[in-house]
């Protein structure tokens, strides 16, 4: 991870004014995607995963405030400098293949429209390239697929179409928002294998948002765990999954049916973005919280092996009932 990152999110905060007050959706979030690597962002609903993606894609909702931070892509700050925005250089694979294609237009035409706006070359070039991409994502009969409507593809095939769309403008980075949650496990497995292969063949970087630790383990080199808009823990995927250090990650992994001794859950609920607790945001639910945890957000502690954990008590054992 020593090479200069392709994408670097630096101390990013995103707030949103709502009727219930200021929602602090992301707070001081940093992460880096090195060239050619696959990085996962994992967390439960409401942790800020989607907002982070939207900030990177430049599609934050109107009225979003960015009180601090930067997003550097290929060395340029794409938050500060709209003109430098990464047009076409960042591809996006959405979550739901059923909702992401307009049913009344041919799938091929919808992707050609993206290429017309963002990729150089003539329509003839675009068509030739799209057929090549359809072959790369293993759609059956690529030439004919160009003329088909979305309903003529199965769920797995539609996700392949969307991956082809994400690759259509030669991106350096592909951002994916839980692209396999709507699919069956056998199809999911094929899509994950396809993403792995394409990333290797095309030297793509991948930023992969998920709530599924199994998918994370199958695909990602490194992971950042978000809790309530802050980074709880980050590091190489294997190390984090085998030996989680943040109390939140430890309790969350203990809920996984593959690992749980007893299905305990985590007491309490994720705080609302408008009512984040002071200090460490996990402290009201944390079994080893101390009074000082409520005072200031804990800075990340660097650990060996390129890991970091935002908890000064990461070496403490959790009480037995919490992990029982």
């Amino acid at each position: 991870m020593s090479d200069r990152p392709l994408l670097a999110v630096e101390n990013l905060s995103v707030h949103l004014r709502t009727e219930a007050g200021l929602a602090r959706i992301l707070d001081d979030v940093s992460l880096a995607v090195p060239p050619g690597r696959t990085v996962g962002v994992v967390g439960e609903s409401g942790c800020g995963k989607t907002t982070l993606l939207r900030a990177i894609l430049g599609i934050l909702p109107r009225g979003a405030l960015i009180p601090g931070g930067a997003i550097r892509f290929e060395g340029r700050d794409i938050l500060a400098d709209r003109a430098a925005s990464a047009r076409g250089r960042i591809g996006f694979v959405p979550q739901d293949p059923y909702l992401s294609l307009n049913p009344v237009f041919r799938a091929g035409d919808q992707i050609l429209e993206i290429m017309r706006r963002h990729a150089p070359g003539t329509r003839r070039d675009h068509r030739a390239k799209l057929v090549e991409l359809f072959r790369a994502v293993q759609l059956p009969d690529a030439e004919a697929a160009l003329r088909k409507y979305p309903h003529q593809f199965s769920g797995g095939q539609r996700q392949r179409l969307l991956i082809a769309a994400a690759l259509s403008c030669d991106p350096a980075l592909v951002v994916a928002d839980e692209p396999t949650t709507a699919l069956d496990v056998t199809t999911q497995r094929e899509i994950l294998a396809l993403l792995r292969r394409l990333a290797a063949e095309r030297n793509l970087s991948l930023l992969f948002v998920t709530h599924d630790f199994g998918v994370l383990a199958a695909l990602c080199d490194a992971v950042t765990v978000l809790y309530a808009g802050r980074v709880a823990e980050a590091g190489p995927t294997r190390a984090v999954l085998d030996d989680p250090r943040h109390p939140y990650t430890r309790l969350l992994l203990a809920c996984h049916p593959d690992r749980a001794v007893d299905l305990a859950g985590i007491p309490g609920t994720v705080p609302a973005a408008t009512a984040q607790p002071a200090g460490c945001r996990f402290h009201p639910r944390c079994p080893i919280a101390r009074p000082a945890c409520a005072d200031a957000p804990p800075p990340p502690v660097a650990l060996p092996g390129g890991r970091a954990v935002a908890c000064p008590h990461h070496a403490d054992a959790l009480p037995e009932p919490a992990l029982a």
Binding site: S154, Q157, V215, T237
Partner: peptide, 23 residues
Amino acid sequence: RALLAAAPHLDGRDTGPSLPGDP
């Protein structure tokens, strides 16, 4: 067997050949 092999696991083990085609 194919169904079990396709399910992702926490330990990230490679779980054998995948099942071709859609149902």
